[in-house]
Computed example of a mutant assay.
Amino acid sequence: MTNKFMKIIGTSALSISLITGVAGAVSANENTASKEGNEAIGIFAIQNNTLDWNLSNNTTADPSTSWTVQSGYPHINMYVKNTGAKSFRVEVKHNTKGTIIFNKTIAADGVGVNFINNDSNPLVPSGTYTVTIYGGSGVPKGTVILKASDTPW
């Protein structure tokens, strides 16, 4: 009886130690990510080259801005929400190579849409991109968020 009791206590202590160790490793990983200037989102380590563009005060028909993808972060996620009365188109084009990684039209329905390019179709080269919103007959309103990751979305 004492032998069985000691085995149960030993097994419970080992389980608690393993759980504590895993929790400690996860916590250490989160601290490392934040110290390196990365933002932890879900299971992805996102580098700080995120474009968060709010178009709510936009007065330009076809606004544009630049955005940089650093080497080693070729997995791109683009979230777009159109809060205006007219649809608009978002184009993300590499400045040097002319590669267009996104060319998407977003309807004026107020629903956010996610687009993903995991370094394929087309390949995502590092460097500076120009992000242009084409409003057509209206001034675009909404949000465009671009994020680069070293892990596929």
Score class of each variant (00 low, 15 high):
K86N: 14
K104E: 15
S56V: 15
T83F: 03
G112Y: 14
D109E: 06
T143Y: 02
F44H: 14
N58A: 10
Y129H: 02
H75V: 11
S87I: 05
K141L: 10
P125S: 02
T60A: 11
N82T: 03
P74I: 12
E39Y: 15
T65P: 00
S34R: 15
D109W: 08
I106A: 01
D119V: 07
V92G: 00
L51R: 05
F88E: 12
G142H: 12
G136V: 13
F115A: 09
Y79G: 07
N48L: 12
D62L: 06
G42I: 06
T65R: 00
S56T: 10
H75S: 04
V80G: 00
I133Y: 00
T130D: 01
Q47W: 14
N117K: 01
I133D: 00
H94Y: 01
A107R: 05
S137C: 05
V80R: 00
V90F: 02
G136M: 09
V111H: 05
Q47T: 10
N118K: 07
T59V: 05
F88P: 08
D119N: 12
T143H: 04
K141G: 09
Q47H: 14
Y73C: 08
N77L: 15
P125V: 09
D109S: 01
S66E: 09
A45N: 14
G37T: 08
L123G: 07
V80Y: 09
T68V: 04
I76H: 00
F88K: 03
Q70V: 14
Y73Q: 05
T59G: 09
G72F: 08
T96I: 12
T83L: 06
Q70P: 01
L123K: 06
A107C: 11
F102S: 12
T99D: 13
W67F: 02
T105V: 13
V80N: 03
T68W: 00
D62G: 13
S87V: 15
A85K: 06
S66Y: 05
N57M: 10
E36Y: 01
I46D: 11
W67M: 00
N54Q: 12
P63G: 02
S66D: 09
P140S: 05
Y73S: 10
A40Q: 06
M78L: 05
G127W: 01
G138L: 10
V90D: 04
D119R: 08
I76A: 02
F44S: 15
G127L: 12
V90I: 08
Q70W: 14
G42C: 15
N114I: 09
N117A: 06
K81G: 00
G72W: 10
V139T: 13
A33Q: 08
T105E: 13
F102I: 06
N103V: 04
M78S: 02
G112H: 04
S120P: 06
